[in-house]
């Protein structure tokens, strides 16, 4: 995944069973963002792998003032890349459960 300057990681162990999972997002390199992110720390949130889209969360983060509207795509892509990795890993490790 391309380095967007925004890092998204699992905020909990993933056992492949729950559809909703805790993620943690923070800005690793603010220079890569168009707008100036509010000087916040790591933002932890729950994401439903089956029902929600990264764009939903990114827009909510912009609405909540964490990021500038012009960065909504970068934030969505960062979340999308991590979610894709989680789903890829789930398919490989727990194919039966999926």
């Amino acid at each position: 995944a391309e380095d967007t300057g925004v890092r998204v990681e699992l905020a909990e162990e993933d056992h492949g069973r729950k559809s909703s999972i805790a993620l943690r997002l923070w800005v690793e390199d603010p220079k890569k963002l168009k707008g100036k992110p509010k000087d916040n720390g790591a933002i932890e949130f729950t994401f439903d792998l089956e029902k929600e889209t990264p764009d939903d969360v990114a827009q909510e983060m912009v609405d909540s003032g964490f990021f500038h509207e012009s960065d909504v795509k970068i934030v969505a892509k960062s979340i999308r890349d991590r979610v894709a990795l989680i789903q890829w890993r789930r398919e490989r490790i727990w194919p039966m459960i999926q």
Partner: peptide, 27 residues
């Protein structure tokens, strides 16, 4: 505590905590 919580109108909770120094790229 240094945790703050923001709840979006759609209901999602965002919990903000300090990023460990080790995880920030050199500025």
């Amino acid at each position: 505590s240094s945790f703050t919580q923001v709840v979006h109108s759609a209901g999602r909770r965002f919990i903000v905590s300090p990023v460990p120094e080790s995880r920030l790229k050199e500025q």
